[in-house]
Simulated scan of single mutants.
Amino acid sequence: METTKPKKTTFINGAIPSEFIGNSIAKHQSKTTIGAHNIFLGQVRADEMDGKKVVAIDYSAYEEMAEQSFYDIREAAFAKYDLTCMHIYHSLGLVKAGEICLFVFVSSPRRKVVFEALEFLVEEIKAKAPVFGKEIFEDETYTWKKNT
Score class of each variant (00 low, 15 high):
T148V: 02
S24V: 00
I125N: 10
K8A: 13
E48V: 07
A26K: 00
K145E: 14
T143C: 10
P109Q: 06
G35L: 12
E140H: 05
F78L: 00
E19K: 00
I25N: 00
L118Q: 04
A127G: 01
V122R: 14
Q43I: 08
F132V: 09
R45E: 01
G42V: 07
E135S: 12
V54G: 08
P130L: 07
A117V: 12
T3N: 15
K112V: 01
D47H: 05
K5N: 03
K128C: 08
P6W: 01
I73Y: 13
T148D: 04
S60M: 08
Y81D: 02
K8T: 07
N23T: 00
L94F: 15
Q68H: 15
S108T: 06
W144C: 03
S30N: 09
G133L: 13
E99I: 06
K53H: 05
K145I: 15
E48Y: 06
A36E: 14
I136T: 09
G42L: 07
E138K: 05
E124T: 00
E119Q: 04
I25G: 00
H37D: 14
V55K: 15
A61E: 11
L41V: 09
N38L: 14
R74Q: 15
K31N: 15
R45F: 01
E123M: 10
A97P: 01
E19M: 02
F40H: 04
Y62L: 13
K146I: 12
K27Q: 10
P130I: 08
F105Y: 08
V106P: 12
A26T: 00
V113A: 09
E116W: 06
T4I: 04
N38E: 10
Y59H: 11
V44R: 02
Y89E: 12
V54Y: 07
